[in-house]
């Protein structure tokens, strides 16, 4: 009996002593922090994707709380709504940015862009691109090894086994930009998100001369400039044998799509046209 009592006493005494120690240490070393940082962090999506340019949501919250002017800070994942609520809470002016979505600018599927050699190294676009131009005649296009897919935190990118190209799931894409940074060929671009997932864009990044580009890939942009001529809004520029549609100017009239002789300009999310233009197979392949 006596030993039992001693045991209980010793153990509880030890417990109390350690609790006291913990309490003292916690008091002594407490880091004073603006409590608003915690609150702001709760408002952010918590994906820690780095889309804002900071290491994670915590770092972003600190910046949001500490900086006077937060117009340069934007969370692409939370979007305008999230930024607005944060700004209201902090009593600062919110930034407005149009919602965006990642777009893969390469249409060189296996069928359009035949393979000319076989890559046999570590399965990474970065490894392949540092080694050589790619396993097709096109030295600019998608390598299809999926660095973008690996970097996507939101499960929004997948390689389509039929085309060998990554496809973006618009529902899941938060435009964090991780894939844009991951792609060594700089094929992925963040473009304006339109209703019904509609987009019109040049699905090619080939800067080679027309004949060279065409030889490598059937749907390459050959830099002919017809699209730029037909565009009523002055949205298309052709530089280095490559057309680019400025999404801030484009009104999606789709005249360029019809005009493009190779089908490099792609329309997505529009109802089918009556008389099937040459680009039809492309359009369906690209529509999710």
């Amino acid at each position: 009996m006596g030993s039992l009592v001693t045991t209980v006493l010793v153990v509880s005494g030890l417990g109390a002593l350690l609790a006291l120690l913990l309490f003292v240490v916690a008091k002594q070393f407490k880091v004073e922090e603006d409590p608003r940082i915690d609150e702001v962090e709760k408002m952010l999506p918590g994906a820690n994707c780095g889309g804002c340019g900071f290491a994670g949501c915590r770092a972003m919250s600190e910046a949001l709380v500490k900086r006077e002017d937060i117009s340069a800070l934007y969370c692409p994942v939370g979007g305008a709504e999230c930024m607005k609520s944060v700004a209201t809470y902090l009593g600062k002016a919110a930034t407005e940015q149009e919602p965006k979505v990642a777009v893969v600018r390469c249409g060189g599927s296996c069928e359009m862009r035949p393979k000319t050699n076989r890559f046999d190294g570590a399965p990474s676009c970065l490894v392949a691109s540092s080694l050589y131009a790619g396993d097709t005649g096109c030295s600019f296009g998608c390598l299809g090894l999926g660095d973008c897919v690996a970097k996507c935190e939101f499960d929004a990118l997948h390689i389509n086994p039929a085309t060998g190209l990554p496809e973006v799931d618009e529902e899941k894409c938060t435009a964090c930009g991780a894939c844009v940074k991951a792609c060594p060929k700089m094929i992925i671009e963040l473009r304006k998100k339109a209703p019904k997932g509609r987009k019109v864009y040049v699905s090619c990044v080939n800067k080679a001369k027309g004949a060279v580009a065409r030889k490598a890939c059937k749907v390459a942009c050959i830099g002919c400039g017809k699209c730029a001529k037909v565009c009523p809004f002055d949205a298309i520029t052709v530089e280095n044998n490559l057309a680019y549609i400025d999404y801030t100017k484009c009104k999606m009239c789709r005249k360029c799509v019809v005009e493009c002789p190779t089908g490099a300009i792609v329309e997505v999310g529009f109802p089918a046209r009556k008389e099937a233009p040459a680009t039809e197979s492309q359009t369906t392949a690209k529509t999710e």
């Binding site: 000319t116 050699n117 190294g121 570590a122 080694l131």
Partner: peptide, 9 residues
């Protein structure tokens, strides 16, 4: 040309 060469590091 129709021979697919292997490319590896």
């Amino acid at each position: 040309e129709n021979q697919k060469l292997v490319i590896s590091p």
